[in-house]
Design a protein around this nucleic acid. Structure first.
Length: 315
DNA sequence: ACGATTTGACCACT
DNA sequence: AGTGGTCAAATCGT
């Protein structure tokens, strides 16, 4: 209901103008959201969805358009969006039953998004930190320099639906309560788990609304709809850090996982941040943070950042 | 019996 | 050669 502007559209080549347009949309949406705060939750949710979608797309535009500087830490990681033309090994979509020869991707053109998850309820089980998708663990490795091993997960529907989405979960060195989750690829599957909130009723068909997948936005949205607290946060080195969120009840370790479905009190904080282009997007993170914060119960609408950002793009 | 997880080995990239 | 990502058989849980 109340369809807000913007439905989908192409994700063609980007440019500053496009970004400004997108940001303007976002700004407008945020304003609408402000108006409707305290009003219809559904509408707010919808607005938040739009905002997330647009924001992520804008991020994509920025990362695609802006000259990227690769940090040493990320030297080996391919820039997801840089391979608009050159796709040496586009095996991401081609993974048939006999998909074996590529143990490791070359260009890894699939999107890569890192999220820091503070899972109080997840405890020892990172998989319990649900983002609305079903994951299946397929490997675990000790990573050099890291205290904790890294777990490799892929979408449960990989074989049934050929969903290429994977994620890597690694416990943070500093805070064992934190998990760094790196998402690769986007979900092409129709996960019924994400919609498992409603016990059959109107859900019925509910076809994928957007023709273009927006994995990040979906992730955020799913987190939102799952009752999770999503919060962007800067890296310590970035100077943008604002410390861990106050919502992590952190002492729930060892809590019985119970049914990881339904509305468990996940006090998980998703702290999404683009890794490679992170520095260049400090401002953007601020915006995303503001947006997400605006769509959360405690409403601290730091709108200044958005306007500021738009102004900076216009400049 | 089926599906998920564990774990060692293999392979690609740097 | 070292490291990281994936495979696949074995094992475990339901």
């Amino acid at each position: 209901m109340a369809s807000v502007v913007h439905g989908g559209g192409g994700n063609g080549g980007g440019g500053g103008g496009l970004v400004v347009t997108e940001l303007s949309h976002i700004r407008e949406l945020v304003r609408q959201l402000e108006v409707h705060l305290g009003g219809s939750p559904d509408l707010c949710k919808h607005l938040a969805a739009q905002i997330s979608s647009l924001t992520e797309r804008s991020i994509g535009l920025v990362t695609a358009g802006a000259g990227r500087k690769r940090s040493a830490a990320d030297a080996g990681l391919a820039s997801p969006l840089s391979s608009a033309a050159a796709t040496p090994t586009s095996d991401v979509t081609a993974d048939g039953p006999f998909f074996k020869s590529t143990k490791k991707r070359k260009g890894l053109e699939a999107r890569r998004h890192q999220v820091r998850v503070s899972s109080a309820a997840g405890g020892d089980n990172p998989a319990a930190v649900d983002d609305g998708h079903s994951w299946r663990k397929y490997g675990q490795k000790e990573i050099l320099g890291a205290k904790h091993p890294r777990g490799y997960y892929r979408c449960t529907h990989r074989h049934s639906q050929g969903c290429p989405a994977t994620k890597q979960v690694q416990r943070s060195d500093d805070d064992p309560a934190l998990f760094d989750v790196i998402y690769h690829g986007d979900h092409t599957c129709v996960d019924n788990k994400a919609r498992a909130g409603r016990p059959a009723g109107d859900a019925a068909a509910a076809p994928p609304p957007e023709p273009e997948h927006n994995p990040e936005a979906h992730t955020i949205l799913q987190s939102l709809t799952a009752g999770l607290t999503v919060k962007t946060e800067g890296l310590p080195a970035s100077g943008l850090a604002e410390r861990r969120s106050p919502f992590s009840t952190s002492e729930n370790w060892g809590v019985s996982p119970a049914t990881s479905d339904s509305n468990n009190n996940h006090a998980a904080n998703y702290l999404p941040f683009e890794d490679a282009e992170w520095r260049g997007q400090a401002e953007f993170q601020e915006v995303v943070s503001a947006l997400v914060a605006a769509s959360a119960p405690p409403p601290p609408p730091a709108m200044d950042g958005l306007d500021e950002l738009i102004a900076s793009f216009l400049a």
